[in-house]
Nucleic acid binder design. Structure first.
Lengths: 140, 140
DNA sequence: ATAAATTAGTTACAAATGAAACTATTTGAT
DNA sequence: ATCAAATAGTTTCATTTGTAACTAATTTAT
């Protein structure tokens, strides 16, 4: 087996490179990685499902529940999210981006898009489709 | 922009899933992630280049030099590597897998290969080729 | 030749992390 | 209805981590 063929190795290295590169974008907004992942998740889902529980965020972001709890505390403190006890079930919180959080999200997203385009400039649409299919497979 | 199209997000999630899944393989040998990355790198390169410096390992594995230093200390203590001062340049160490480290590597690799095959069972060779091309691009 | 600058690696310390214990709420069994 | 089991989220504490300071070796400039 060649290292060149080592899927996990390649993925980890690429993810690490991407992660570092992306850090420069959201860090300029004072966000750390868990906060950015949460913002990205909430921002994406907010059109349809306005709220998510901490548990759902934990699953979507692959952050453990302690990290989510702490990130949400900071984000609430910074006015980026609204956190209210769920009416149906007092164990859950309904978490959503605040207007301010939504504004920040909408400011960051175009920069991410630009960054992503630069990363994909040598890749055709059909190649990217296949790439997505492959990594979709990994998480399945 | 749809979350479905968020490259970085998808990569981070897939890498996280893969990393967790792979952890079960090397953890059973008492290795932690930095140790496994170092072993994989040394094991792969050992046919041609028998030794690597801690710095080279740090670059290859995307671990910072402190992590590498600590991992090498543990691995040396466990008899998995040999670490000798370079003759040419007294700042470098020549690091290589010990026979015991090599044996462990050769025991783990087939399990990684099996694991990888199961992850790729729905993927054709040409699709995998394209996938590799795309992630190669990220690190460039 | 010598002193400043650079580089490899380690150490120390402060910050981030996660497992386990904890609180609070809900569900399910009797 | 009541009590045990389960679930969401928080807190505690011990470990892990990374930045910055350090040591030691080498290179570069003068």
């Amino acid at each position: 087996m060649k290292l060149e063929d080592m899927l996990a190795y390649k993925m980890a290295m690429a993810a690490s490179d991407i992660s570092e590169s992306l850090y420069n974008v959201y860090a300029s907004y004072g966000l750390v990685m868990p906060e950015w992942r949460i913002m990205a998740t909430l921002g994406h889902f907010s059109p349809d499902s306005k709220v998510m529980s901490a548990k759902a965020l934990s699953q979507a972001t692959r952050l453990d529940k302690v990290s989510v709890s702490r990130a949400l505390k900071r984000m609430e403190h910074n006015g980026l999210i609204c956190k209210t006890l769920s009416k149906n079930d007092g164990r859950f919180f309904d978490v959503a981006l605040s207007p301010r959080g939504e504004a920040m999200y909408n400011e960051i997203i175009p920069k991410i898009r630009l960054w992503q385009q630069s990363k994909l400039k040598n890749i055709t649409d059909s190649e990217y489709e296949i790439f997505l299919k492959v990594i979709e497979n990994f998480s399945a």
